[in-house]
Amino acid sequence: MNEQAKEKISYYKTSLFHPFYAFYEIRFRKKGSLKIAFVLMCLFGILQCAAYQYTGFVMNKNPVHEMNSVSIFLTYAGGVVLFTISNWAVTTLFNGKGGMGDIFTVVCYSLTPLIALDLIVVIASNFVIIEEVMILQAIHGIALVYFIFLAMAGLCTIHEYSLKENIISILATFIAAAIIIFIGVLFFTMIEKMAGFIWLVVEEAMRKL
């Protein structure tokens, strides 16, 4: 392992406890690593699959027999990607300074507490009774709050936003994400209709000829 990689890993660790400082370094001194971010995103998707299947019976209300791990993985990992794209689209309009890679790095780095604590929750959920479920839910809540804090701090830093601007841009991000999904669905239905039509024409032609 070379020096550069070691330094990047050390900045990843720092980002968990000193997000403003570390994300500043990541944005302006290129200390971030897209590879680490990508691995974290994959871990997050895999963890969600594991949570669906291996959460203890007392807490697990999912119909495990009809689980689809591909769709779960894509939902969560795709969610991260979608957020990155729509946040980039919005912040370019709102004078944000961060690039797409910066946003992706920040969001994935911030997922770390969620991955770590939820892994504990999934394992511990196999040993609890209903009265103790509350404790695990509290841990999950802490993880969620920590994740939101890290992501907000990171996005503020890389875009050079104030907190208010950042919140507005995130709200706009969700609207943008909804529009992207809508257009995506529209696009695929149109393609489907068109393919159907072409197939119909081909079928008709084959009968006539």
Partner: peptide
């Protein structure tokens, strides 16, 4: 039956 499973699990644990 998760509620009763939890009761049985408590005893087992």
């Amino acid at each position: 039956n998760r509620i009763f499973y939890s009761k049985a699990f408590n005893g087992y644990r």
